[in-house]
Design a protein around this nucleic acid. Structure first.
Lengths: 214, 214
DNA sequence: GTCTATACGATGATAGAC
DNA sequence: GTCTATCATCGTATAGAC
């Protein structure tokens, strides 16, 4: 990476691989608008306007408004899944893997809260087929996390009575960061990630959990 | 309560104090529609249709579609606040009060997940003034929960490094139940409430937390 | 209070010039 | 590829009869 590109806005490089330039600008504009007002409250005119184009220009690059949401959702969910995959495949104890997974997953949801808010809370606006496709990605993420928790239980590191229920709660907790996180809030994405990793280790009854608060 | 009124649908009595009958039916229809599709994707025609009325009939009872959301949001948030107030005012240790608060709060969000989904996830559709009013109710709920946590820390029952952050996480966790809970899922509202009460006690490092899983 | 009919602005999407 | 102009439709809300 060139040292001169300091990227004040994380979103700037988030869609770097989308070409041409106009298509990328449209995605960026749509993410912002969808996150602010919601999919249905956002007009194609608004999206095009933010991208510096006429309303018609949008349809050169995307067939419908829904396709725009679908693209955003796909890329976002693949990124979230990748994070979970990497954490699950990492070495170390279940405790270390769970801690890493939560820290990274939460940090991404905080850092990219605009994108995350769209992919997590505008799902229902997807068409039926697209919705099913995205749901499959979500289930894979859930399975990976559940396996880490199960590994910890099997190894005697965690103490969890209801593994699926606890996993669901953990995922719900982490995802919901996208809803309340604000860039000008009191906490950095790093700090939230660290806090949440600690909280989740407590939730699963990890042996050494809670040390930091004791 | 009469033994013959078995209420298969919890929503049926949720708006019991709204009169006249048509206004109540409209609120019920709006809650269902808003929860299913979201506020902006719901048309006034849809709401009126579900309530068995013509589109115009809606405007006899509510000035705008937004007012309908505002009424729903107000009643729902007041109920949620009441739950938290009762739990905070209850006797017993901080551990008992936190456990009770979470169990009841979560049970309500599961049992009334349709209403809860609307009041928690369609907030942004409110007008500016209404939004501010509702936000005030939300802040009171947050303060009450935070005080319980702080009490537990002060009493040495809890071990929490970051009280506001942990409280935020707990509230986020509990509220998000409304998003994923389904009446035909594997768990009853009671079960979810019990699970979450346990998880939250672990999150705050309550002295005896985690017993059930160990 | 409810209905039918309708005003009227906004919206997703397209046509055709450049 | 982008723009201007425009279409067809939908959506909120109102008017006026009953």
């Amino acid at each position: 990476m060139g040292a001169e590109a300091e990227r004040a806005v994380p979103e700037a490089e988030e869609w770097a691989d989308i070409a041409p330039d106009a298509a990328r600008r449209l995605v960026g504009a749509a993410v912002q608008a969808f996150a602010e007002r919601g999919y249905h409250a956002t007009t194609t005119r608004d999206i095009a306007g933010r991208a510096g184009m006429s309303p018609a220009a949008l349809y050169i690059h995307y067939k419908t408004k829904e396709e725009l949401l679908y693209r955003i959702s796909g890329i976002g969910h693949e990124k979230a899944l990748r994070i979970m995959e990497d954490a699950a495949a990492a070495g170390g104890t279940a405790t270390e893997r769970l801690s890493g997974a939560v820290r990274t997953f939460v940090r991404w949801h905080a850092e990219h809260h605009t994108t995350a808010r769209v992919i997590q809370y505008e799902l229902q606006a997807l068409g039926e087929e697209h919705y099913a496709e995205i749901t499959a990605l979500r289930r894979r993420t859930d399975r990976l996390l559940r396996q880490i928790v199960q590994d910890g239980v099997d190894a005697g590191e965690f103490h969890v009575a209801d593994v699926p229920g606890t996993t669901l709660a953990v995922l719900s907790l982490c995802v919901d960061v996208a809803r309340w996180f604000s860039a000008d809030g009191a906490r950095t994405p790093d700090e939230v990630g660290a806090l949440y990793a600690d909280l989740v280790l407590r939730m699963v009854g990890a042996e050494w959990a809670g040390t930091s608060g004791r």
